[in-house]
Design a protein around this nucleic acid. Structure first.
Lengths: 348, 348
DNA sequence: TCAGTTTGGGAAAACGTTTTCGCAGCCGGT
DNA sequence: ACCGGCTGCGAAAACGTTTTCCCAAACTGA
């Protein structure tokens, strides 16, 4: 054991040489085969031997080299995460979920942002493949847009999380239609009947989805939307503000609730209502969508809103990729995962 | 060549077997040694041979196995990025900078969020070390806080980016004092003389730093702050709003400019001023800090603010880590990198 | 023709693991 | 005494590279 202990000869330009399983074997006076089996719990051997090896390994603070193992097993326990969401609003929770699901399986995650330039994106993908990632997760900021790189030809499994994938791929998205139902049902349960929908640009896939959930929930209750069509604008506070003024100016009367397409719109809308002396939720209840804390928790009153469970979505994507990597069959198609209503005070 | 071309026998549970340098060598009718040298540009050989090997490699779409190379060279071309900034406000730009600086050097980045629980953080670090990262960058959401994991004992180089490190370590932070000077100098250049400072909690290191820059810039111009001490509150819009009302209520008169400790405060302050009929920037000019686009671009008028150049900070951290990894000497200490004033309309 | 030099290319070791196979030694049963 | 089976452990191959020699063959000059 002392023989190995003083083997801290400098190497690797100044840093201590790594301690390998050879060192452990030598110090335990067994072969490397036995050392390996002792540490991995495989193989037959005297329990005394196994314990001795384990103790020596700990004493030397042996850390197995995952690179060597990866080379042998053809499996790197590493995946790549691609995203075009520089801002991180959507990708970060997804990433957290992936990471959480995979870390205790020993899988690490390479993160790359691909932006719009597909050349640098492709070089990122190449780097990942050279590093022998076991699989790739593609993620984005819009679930109706593809990434700028083509992943259909890579020879490792790919899953798409909050991002459009090619035909026949495996994807996870949030079920925005059902999420919208949740919101509207809540409003109706609180006795609201004249419910308006103020939302974002119609070319975002989520806009018709949320609108459909809104319409369906109302229809099931035998109600009609307050305005015949959802009021579409952009995703800004300014639009929410303007929409509120339009609603208040309507001679046909006021809604008693508004379901907003996202939290920024809700924020602007609430600001406008408050400014006009309309009580929220007293006169008009408001529900948002996204649960973007920085907005939802800062509005007065705090905003009831739909959370897309992005972390959960990430967990599912991670576990599914693992299934694929380990050869378990996964049917193709995109799964819509449920949203969750976060109740705060803006809905009464 | 056909001999190798039909060697696409299935392996790796269903997926095509990887093409290795052996395949390239066989198809080019050279040894693997020659193939390696041909592809890497090393060694002497007939130019015809080199070209032939290269063409065959391209035809087979050969991708060198970075794992094998890493094992041999004792260098994985991989680094770990640790962060406790789940929200990503600070880490994401830093990450983008790191990535940008390192990708064309062939270095990939493992991202891990460590949160507060140091046990899972430690397991992340262990996973990284087992995967033989060449170095680690620690990053956070507050430059006066340490990460929950101890990196002083790991045997790879570590640099700290927007995060406190142990004594004698290498770190990068933004020069908030100088950034504050920039802001105040701008206001003075525009003729403002009665400048107030509304900022966040004093236990954030950035608060005294920004306050010092504020005070110094004024002193250099022979001016005195509008209030004797900076007005401290929390980092919220609500505090900005309240501060505005306090300033307007002051019988001693109004300031003609306010330098805010962050963009949220600025946002609330502008809202309050506008509500009171005070023109921004006509009556009172406002400058923020952070350049958090979602706030800075959404205020009316758009907010002039100090950008911390976090992406640049990330680039520096990445390149410095690379220096360390490759054995180039780097003096210890923390470097304060300059901020940049982003001029929009709120300062006139 | 011969010695010396250059040129083109290959054999083999090395990196740190895991795993298969086999070999001693021992025990129990006949 | 001999055979079969079990136990404990080790030798060696394998993963895909890079790099260090080394060796032929070709060429050079006299």
């Amino acid at each position: 054991m002392d023989e190995a202990a003083d083997r801290t000869l400098p190497a690797r330009n100044g840093r201590a040489a790594r301690v390998t399983i050879h060192d452990v074997a030598r110090a335990s006076e067994v072969s490397i085969a036995t050392a390996s089996k002792a540490l991995s719990g495989q193989g037959r051997m005297a329990v005394a031997t196994r314990e001795r090896v384990k103790e020596v390994a700990k004493a030397l603070s042996f850390r197995p080299n995952a690179i060597a193992r990866a080379l042998l097993k053809q499996r790197s326990f590493t995946i790549g995460l691609l995203t075009d969401d520089t801002y991180g609003r959507f990708t970060l929770p997804v990433m957290a979920g992936i990471s959480e699901a995979l870390v205790d399986r020993g899988v690490s995650v390479f993160l790359c942002s691909v932006e719009r330039d597909s050349a640098v994106g492709q070089s990122h993908v190449d780097a990942m493949l050279e590093k022998q990632v076991d699989g790739i997760i593609a993620s984005g900021k819009r679930l109706d847009r593809r990434l700028s790189v083509d992943l259909s030809v890579v020879d490792v499994p790919v899953v798409y999380a909050y991002c459009e994938g090619p035909e026949g791929s495996i994807g996870f998205v949030s079920d925005d239609r059902a999420g919208a139902c949740l919101a509207v049902e809540r409003l109706m349960a609180l006795g609201r009947r004249r419910i308006a929908h103020v939302t974002g640009p119609a070319d975002f896939a989520v806009v018709p989805q949320r609108a459909r959930g809104f319409a369906e929930a109302l229809a099931r209750a035998g109600l009609r939307p307050f305005t015949e069509h959802p009021m579409v604008g952009d995703w800004s506070e300014a639009w929410g503000f303007a929409a509120a003024e339009r609603l208040l100016a309507d001679p046909a009367g006021r809604p008693d609730a508004v379901f907003c397409g996202n939290d920024q719109i809700a924020r602007g809308l609430i600001d406008a209502l408050t400014l006009r002396g309309v009580a929220v939720p007293g006169d008009i209840a408001v529900v948002g969508f996204d649960n973007w804390e920085i907005f939802a928790a800062a509005t007065r009153p705090p905003l009831t809103t739909v959370d897309m469970n992005l972390k959960d979505l990430g967990r599912h994507a991670g576990l599914t990729l693992l299934d694929l990597v380990e050869g378990r069959p996964v049917p193709p198609g995109v799964r819509a995962l449920p949203c969750r209503l976060v109740v705060r005070r803006s809905c009464g």
